[in-house]
Design a protein around this nucleic acid. Structure first.
Length: 422
RNA sequence: GAGGCUGUAGCUCAAUGGCGGAGCGUCUGACUGUGGAUCAGAAGGUCGUGGGUUCGACCCCCAUCAGCCUCCCCA
């Protein structure tokens, strides 16, 4: 134990059980993405640091990216997010793609953060984007993808909610209460923190940052206005479209959803656990300038990203983790003794050619030991070909589930296994 | 970056500053061609790591590493 080198902080091992879950999640994601006609793609794990300098937040690049120099002296980053890579891939082939482009991806990312519940330094993230659709109606499709996914994995509108807002609406409203361009970042930050601070502490924070009492009262009235979305044609249209697609119950307008990312310009949304103290598990929105920022021509996009860690926490919390069988072989061929070992290996090969996954016990051992092993690894049936069976051209099939066994001719073995439902 | 809790057998955890334990699991046997049960036995530990205090440290102190939790942050 002492001499086992520890794994790097914040990294996870995926033993077969965890790997089975990750594969399951990947499958759910693929299923929904393809339902809406999105194509899978992948970008490099390593990118030049300057790719992120273009638009990602300062915090992300300076504090949270894994950065190192390669042997050529270049500044390289382990990708902390995918969107800049996506923007580059689009820009590189800007004139040959059929728009709107619908792409999705699921892969690993790294951020140098303090590991805690729902957060690791290496995580997997689903990214899904539609690029090249200028109309805000496209935003509704991404919200539907999001809701369809939540529905697919069993998260109901009672458990989670997609909080939607629109930055343009908020900008207009803030302008009405005389929030200047200089004040806007502070006010955004203030809005973002409203649920994190106590009311009095929140007010103090506002005053300290130069927000006058009058403006603060107007801001509170603005944020508390549940009907504010009705003043946005974008939001009313989007809500209507998502409702028509059958996912209206998942949506809720929330004027406090702003999102930290600099590049969002229109609709923004986050999926939240509705329980008290709930957290965001997914976020996204519309961005107008990203492709331009990496050197392409202006092209709008809308998309979202979801990490595997928080969604797992949520599924576990609501008892929705799937029960997965991660033993691919349902049959074990026993190895009786040195004389019949080659027959056992040969039998296993015959069964495999019959289309059934098989493991062999690789060396002679006591039969009860092999039976225990078969149980441990989750096999459904075992095959015994000892001296008696070999001499008679037969094989004994033992059904571990029903505790029955039969001796059949070798030629019938595959058929008999099929009859057991294997 | 800040704070709190934890670290003892493969796993889950006990142990008043004075002989390091239990349950589960593993292995062996009872059972030399038949599994999940039962019984018996065995293996398995530099008590996270490094210092310090003490006649004596798993226990107290300091540092450090890791895990969990909270704050900060959140693409």
């Amino acid at each position: 134990m002492k001499e086992i080198v520890q794994k790097v902080k914040g990294m996870r091992d995926f033993y077969p059980a965890e790997m089975a879950f990750r594969t399951w999640l990947y499958h759910q994601i693929r299923c929904i993405s393809e339902q809406f006609g999105y194509q899978e793609y992948e970008a490099p794990i390593l990118e030049k640091l300057e790719l992120y300098a273009a638009k990602s937040g300062e915090e992300l690049v300076k504090e949270q990216a894994y950065v190192f120099s390669d042997r050529g002296g270049g500044e390289i980053a382990l990708r902390p997010e995918l969107t800049p890579s996506l923007a580059r891939m689009i820009a590189q082939r800007q004139n040959e793609l059929a728009y709107p482009v619908r792409w999705w991806s699921f892969g690993p990312f790294w951020r140098y953060e303090q590991p805690q519940k729902g957060r690791t330094r290496e995580f997997f993230q689903w990214n899904i984007d539609m690029i090249g659709a200028a109309g805000y109606q496209a935003d509704a499709e991404l919200l539907a993808v999001c809701a369809a996914f939540l529905n697919q994995i069993g998260l109901t509108p009672e458990m989670v909610q997609i909080k939607v807002n629109n930055r343009r609406l908020m900008d207009e409203q803030l302008l009405k209460i005389d929030v200047t361009a200089e004040l806007k970042p502070v006010v955004y930050r203030l809005i973002d923190r409203r649920d994190k601070l106590r009311p009095d502490a929140w007010r103090d924070f506002a005053i300290e940052n130069g927000i006058g009492t009058d403006m603060l009262e107007q801001l509170i009235a603005l944020l508390d206005n549940q009907e504010l979305w009705k003043e946005s044609e974008t939001l009313t249209t989007i809500f209507d479209l998502v409702d028509k697609m059958g996912y209206g119950e998942y949506l809720a307008f929330d004027s406090q959803v702003i999102r930290g990312l600099l590049y969002y310009t229109g609709t923004v949304f986050e999926v939240w656990d509705k329980a008290p103290g709930g957290r965001a598990v997914l976020g996204g929105g519309r961005y107008e300038n990203l492709v331009e920022d990496v050197g392409g021509d202006p092209l709008p996009g809308v998309g979202f990203a979801m990490g595997d860690v928080m969604i797992s926490v949520l599924l576990e919390k609501y008892g929705l983790l799937p029960t997965l069988n991660y033993q691919p072989a349902h049959v074990l061929v026993t190895c009786f003794d040195d004389q019949t070992l080659s027959d056992a290996y040969q039998l296993a090969a015959e069964i495999r050619r019959g289309g059934i996954n098989v493991i062999t016990y690789p060396e002679p051992a006591k039969l009860n030991k092999q039976l225990k092993f078969a149980n441990r690894v989750g096999a459904r049936a075992i095959l015994i070909a000892g001296p008696d069976e070999v001499a008679a051209g037969q094989v004994t099939i033992k059904d571990l589930l029903n505790r029955t066994q039969q001796t059949v001719s070798r030629a019938d073995c595959v058929r008999e296994l099929r009859a057991l439902g294997i």
